[in-house]
Design a protein around this nucleic acid. Structure first.
Length: 943
RNA sequence: GCCCGAGUGGUGGAAUUGGUAGACACGUUGGACUUAAAAUCCAAUGACCAUUGCGGUCGUGCGGGUUCAAGUCCCGCCUCGGGUACCA
């Protein structure tokens, strides 16, 4: 009885307070952002989550808490803050579940969203929920579809370096054909205006297709049979699908693609102006993969006289300087000329090899990188600079998808060519000499010399030049003799945009005579139809082919593919600006006001996916004049992942006995994961363990000091490792404010760190201690109006300064300790004064908003504290009269010396040398030098 | 292989511009209160040596260097994490 009573009086009742204020915020729309405002704007965005069935674990809110702190801080500084949240609602898990159970993915998704929302609300985020978007909502995906149509109706003009309407292109074709058009497009033969006019509608559309930014084409795709769909390059990791880890094959399929390659250079250039982590920018640079070099043609030694072969085989090289060392050529097995150049004698061998290469999985190909394979075609080409005949080989180390799918091989200066030449006994000629080294016989080399550091030899006109100069000279020569030209190549591929799945945006396209046409914009959104099963049809068509009447009013069949996951997330940050607009994606005014995202927080796993697609999407809309900023995300922070901390028990081999961590070496044991909820401070609750699973019912324990101590390890948080910490239990026990503070206290926001519940008590204690500055044990307000002392003011103002600086540099962990220090010091001073405690409540708001609101209101204030001015600090309270100088001798600190802060260097030096403590260290030594750094240190050099 | 990032007490981490290394917190130990426990409060807590007191030596992954002074800057390595990989 007594105990219960004590708990009721318990001063800080987080459960009641947090519920109350969450309700208040929701009722009063405290965090609603207005599109019309005289205030400066600040846009803080989180990467919106995919609502998975597992709900949130403690890792998810980490970034949300950080962005919420910044949002709240900016509101206190008078900004109109846009801080929205929504859901990336299309995704494979809900669809896989639908396949298994027949439950509509929308049902699953809505259920998961409801759970996410409830969890998010509990943490006390200051989102403007009136702006919520869901990618699967027709009102949202209408604009995803709309953007797709704009992409379809656009082409990329290299002359103006931007996207322009296809309608303009048609006008140009009618006027002068395509000879003056400089576009990023598929290879298209030249035609005149007359020729254009003579073409059929179908032929014209076919040509336009090769210019469109969203285009349909037969391409080599990553086909994942287990998922029954095609995947984009960034969705494939190590030859396996990123989701589910299923094998991926190469397959030729007719697919929609986005011509993101048109933007390669701008995507690269834009990285220079954004404030992103260097590592992330580097990842994008690598993904875009710009390389400078030359494109040139090798004539066939015996062309068959066809127009095609007359041009020769085109290759791309970054080392045109080494042309004199090009002793053979290699084509990718998929190269279009393989059949036509192979000689009769080699036919069988070549076709066998091509077949073999084709059937290899991507995974095999990757894991067997070191294995050298290839076959001779029997054909020869002519090196354009020295007119030597070189054999043409086929090998799968040359990729069809990069450059032209053909290379000139320079074995002396390229390690892959070197390995190939060695294996097949092809000749190797040295053309670059390492500085300070004599040229030697390459046949004796252990490896090729790939470095660009060196001087040309055996290279005719380039002899004696350094590599850099020779590259320029070679390109010039190639252009002179009209066989090649300088060229920049990108590794970036066009984004494959079709998925053979149900749960995604339908394409707003229909087919007339096999040619795709866009729907009328008035007919958008094209809503996702109902189907009887979420599987492909018997004939292998995507699930949408099951839909009844999947055709236009005129009876033309609609596209049956759906869009990929990154479609909906590419422009969601724009829709937040004006989420309920039925007329437009977003209004011009809204975009002019909100412009772009000032702070974007999310994981770095999106480096090569979402963050590139989004930038592309934004640049395209910029070209259309719809958005006013070319880069969508000004500042970006990657929050680190929170890893799990697994606990282990040690089962003695073949028994049901479990030995405590410290004694496990004495036995032959096997480590088993145990649920971290049964473990506190590494001590196992043995009774709970016995009840956990039937297998453990009769478990026996070998204890140390009467306790069973568990082992631990840092691993990924996952259900199977029983180390998932969900926030709900912690919030119930300690409250959201504690959780928020603790997640920040764990360490720098951008660092990966293991979750460890141990420290949360300390943060909870801090909040209770802070509460006690305002209330006594009977929960009576004890704040007084007495004038604050200098000491108290100093504590407050140094904390204000620290918190402001810390938030400005996103150092959230150090803020938390600043609050703790402040509370400790005010407690020591027994300070209960309004002059200190009222500003402190405001200061606390970004991190612990519920408590701040409660304190603010209990102090007699009306309404929410959210928009109250953030406290300013005054230097005059921070000033010290004295500074305690550490005095060191030869760099070792020996004693402290208190001096007035305005003491001159000479005075400090004099006092230091004359002080009693100094004598000991000066005895028998000469002072060689004295360094005095004002308000820092004194260093006396003796010897 | 290549490109990034990181290594600081038993643990998470702090040290913002080269200037007192280890703030703050956890954990541990000892103590107060209590019949007891929880909660709370107080004290100690990098290692080693000396502990009769003053104290001393070492110490930020390793080895070197620059400097009056280095966790911080430079050179060379090691380990871990991430990205990428026949990209010509």
């Amino acid at each position: 009885m007594k105990r219960e009573k004590a708990e009721i009086i318990m001063a800080y009742n987080h459960q009641e307070i947090e519920k109350k204020w969450q309700q208040y915020w929701s009722n009063h729309k405290t965090f609603k952002a207005e599109n019309k405002s005289d205030k400066p704007k600040f846009y803080v965005l989180d990467m919106f989550p995919y609502p998975s069935g597992a709900g949130l674990h403690v890792g998810h809110p980490l970034g949300y808490i950080a962005s919420d702190i910044v949002s709240r801080f900016k509101r206190h500084q008078g900004y109109n803050v846009l801080h929205p949240m929504g859901y990336d609602a299309y995704g494979l898990p809900a669809e896989q579940y639908a396949i298994q159970t027949g439950t509509h993915p929308e049902v699953t998704t809505n259920k998961n969203i409801a759970r996410y929302r409830q969890q998010l609300d509990q943490i006390g985020f200051s989102f403007d929920w009136d702006r919520e978007v869901r990618t699967s909502d027709p009102n949202y995906y209408k604009w995803t579809q709309w953007t797709f149509i704009q992409l379809f109706e656009s082409w990329y003009n290299k002359k103006t370096d931007k996207a322009e309407p296809v309608s303009d292109l048609k006008v140009a074709f009618e006027k002068e054909g395509n000879q003056n058009i400089d576009a990023v497009c598929d290879e298209t033969p030249l035609f005149t205006a007359n020729e254009w006019k003579l073409k059929s509608e179908f032929e014209q559309q076919e040509i336009l297709m090769s210019y469109r930014l969203a285009y349909l084409s037969e391409t080599m795709v990553n086909w994942c049979p287990a998922l029954g769909t095609v995947l984009a390059n960034d969705e494939v990791k190590d030859g396996l699908s990123e989701r589910g880890g299923h094998p991926v094959e190469r397959k030729l399929m007719k697919q929609w693609s986005l011509r993101i390659t048109a933007y390669a250079q701008r995507l690269l250039d834009g990285l220079e102006v954004v404030d992103w982590p260097e590592s992330l920018k580097e990842m994008q640079r690598n993904w875009i993969g710009r390389s400078e070099g030359a494109s040139l043609h090798f004539q066939l030694a015996k062309p068959d006289g066809s127009e095609e072969q007359a041009k020769g085989i085109e290759v791309f090289t970054t080392r045109p300087d080494t042309l004199f060392g090009a002793t053979f050529m290699v084509l990718a097995p998929e190269h279009e000329w393989v059949d036509s150049i192979t000689t009769e004698e080699q036919k069988a061998e070549v076709s066998e090899y091509v077949q073999w290469a084709k059937n290899r999985s991507e995974r095999e190909r990757m894991t067997e990188v070191k294995k050298v394979t290839g076959v001779f075609t029997g054909a020869y080409a002519i090196n354009p600079l020295n007119n030597q005949e070189v054999p043409i080989w086929i090998a799968d180390y040359v990729l069809a998808g990069y450059g032209t799918g053909a290379i000139m091989a320079v074995p002396a200066h390229d390690s892959r060519d070197f390995a190939f030449a060695r294996h097949f006994n092809l000749s190797i000629i040295q053309v670059v000499s390492q500085p300070g080294d004599e040229p030697s016989d390459p046949n004796t080399w252990e490896e090729s010399y790939d470095s660009k550091d060196g001087v040309m030899i055996s290279s005719g006109f380039m002899d004696g030049m350094n590599v850099k100069k020779a590259i320029k000279a070679a390109i010039q020569k190639l252009e002179e003799i009209n066989v090649g030209t300088g060229k920049i190549n990108y590794r970036l591929r066009d984004a494959i945009f079709s998925r053979q799945r149900y749960w995604g945006e339908p394409f707003p396209m229909y087919y007339k005579n096999g040619m795709p046409y866009p729907l009328n914009e008035d007919d958008l959104p094209l809503e996702l139809p109902e189907v009887d099963k979420y599987l492909p049809t018997e004939t292998g068509e995507p699930p949408l082919a099951r839909a009844k009447n999947w055709k236009t009013e005129d009876g033309y069949p609609l596209e049956t593919n759906t869009m990929p996951g990154f479609a909906g997330s590419s422009g969601y940050y724009l829709r937040y600006m004006d989420p309920n607009n039925n007329q437009e994606y977003f209004s011009k005014d809204a975009n002019q006001y909100w412009r772009n995202v000032d702070l974007y927080i999310g994981g770095d796993e999106h480096a090569a996916g979402h963050l590139i697609y989004s930038r592309f999407w934004n640049k395209f809309l910029y070209d259309l004049g719809l958005v006013c900023e070319e880069e969508p995300f000004k500042k970006l922070i990657n929050q680190g992942k929170i890893q799990g901390r697994s606990s282990f028990v040690y089962r003695v081999q073949g028994t049901n006995q479990y030995v405590s961590y410290g004694l496990r070496k004495q036995y032959n044991t096997q480590a088993l994961h145990v649920d971290i909820n049964m473990v506190e401070n590494d001590v196992l609750d043995t009774e709970a363990f016995k009840k956990w699973m039937p297998d453990f019912k009769d478990a026996e324990f070998i204890l140390e000091d009467g306790k069973y101590i568990c082992g631990h390890e840092v691993e990924k948080m996952s259900k199977s490792k029983h180390n998932v910490q969900n926030p709900d239990d912690l919030i119930e026990k300690y409250g959201a404010d504690t959780l928020r503070l603790y997640e920040m206290f764990l360490g720098p926001i951008d660092q990966h760190k293991p979750w460890d519940t141990k420290g949360i008590e300390g943060v909870y204690r801090f909040l209770k201690k802070l509460w006690k500055l305002y209330f006594n044990d009977d929960d009576q307000l004890i704040v007084v109006d007495e004038k604050a002392s200098d000491d108290e003011l100093k504590v407050l103002h140094k904390t204000i300064k620290k918190i402001r600086e810390d938030i400005d540099r996103y150092s959230f962990n150090t803020s938390v300790s600043a609050y703790m220090i402040c509370t400790n010091e005010l407690s020591d001073l027994k300070c209960h004064k309004r002059e200190i405690l009222e500003p402190l409540a405001v200061l606390l708001e970004p991190y612990a908003p519920h408590m701040a609101e409660e304190l603010w209101s209990k102090l007699g204030n009306e309404g929410s504290v959210s928009h109250v001015d953030f406290p300013e600090y005054d230097e005059k309270y921070l000033k010290e009269d004295n500074f305690e100088y550490p005095v060191s001798f030869n760099g070792k600190v020996r004693f402290k010396l208190s001096m007035p802060v305005d003491a001159s260097q000479a005075e400090v030096e004099k006092s230091a040398l004359e002080s009693d403590e100094a004598k000991r260290w000066l005895e028998g030594k000469t002072v060689r030098k004295v360094i005095v750094v004002p308000k820092r240190i004194v260093n006396i050099v003796v010897g």
